[in-house]
Design a protein around this nucleic acid. Structure first.
Lengths: 105, 105
DNA sequence: ATGATACATCGATAGTTATCAATGTCGTGT
DNA sequence: ACACGACATTGATAACTATCGATGTATCAT
């Protein structure tokens, strides 16, 4: 079952399990650099954007950007695919569904 | 200018200032206990809910709940008003506007 | 094979956070 | 004034996080 469905479920209070699944998504967005990273990836649309084009505009070192992208990826918000030496990032399908469900709960 | 407006502004990438203003809101929701706290307060509607009714269902000590409520309050997500010895919490008007703006950006 | 480029991982550090016991503060009732 | 209940604050601790330099890994071009 998707986290979004868990969050939506029932009319009772938000379950502990749903809250525990939801919190990491908010945590992934609880950093200015990651918010801007997510925004940049989202603006790139279905094509995605190369990791190499994300380091410079955010004024952080390459390992730091790599770290933040990993956090976003592990939260299920973005996806990556390799193309030669490049790695392209794009928004995961239904990435913000769970967050959106909570907001509109 | 509201944070929501900053997030909405323009068609360029999310500005550093907007991201820095938005991140603390996500951070405030990046904890299971606070997500459930916010949910409980929201379910209470305009009347609000007494702090004393928030400690028990979340299985945390009174200082811990007090700490989390402070985080939510300082993030502008909830408001509190005193009524005798009780303190009533309610959802701040337009609490999630900025977050919502970002999601639908 | 060699070198170069893109990205990830490691190790270290400084800053932040979640938690609780103890204590403080404020309002109420007696 | 005094005791009590509701909540906040303090102090301490363990866990987590953002950051970067150094290093590792994978792919491509020559």
């Amino acid at each position: 079952m998707t986290i979004a469905k868990q969050v939506q479920l029932g009319k009772g209070p938000l379950a502990d399990s749903a809250a525990s699944a939801l919190a990491p998504m908010f945590a992934a967005l609880a950093d200015p650099i990651r918010l801007r990273l997510f925004d940049l990836v989202r603006r790139a649309g279905v094509d995605g954007i190369c990791s190499c084009d994300l380091t410079e505009p955010l004024d952080r070192s390459q390992p730091t950007i790599s770290h933040h992208l990993k956090v976003l990826r592990e939260a299920g918000l973005v996806e990556s695919r390799r193309d030669g030496t490049w790695i392209w990032y794009s928004i995961a399908p239904r990435a913000l569904d769970a967050v959106s469900q909570f907001i509109q709960r």
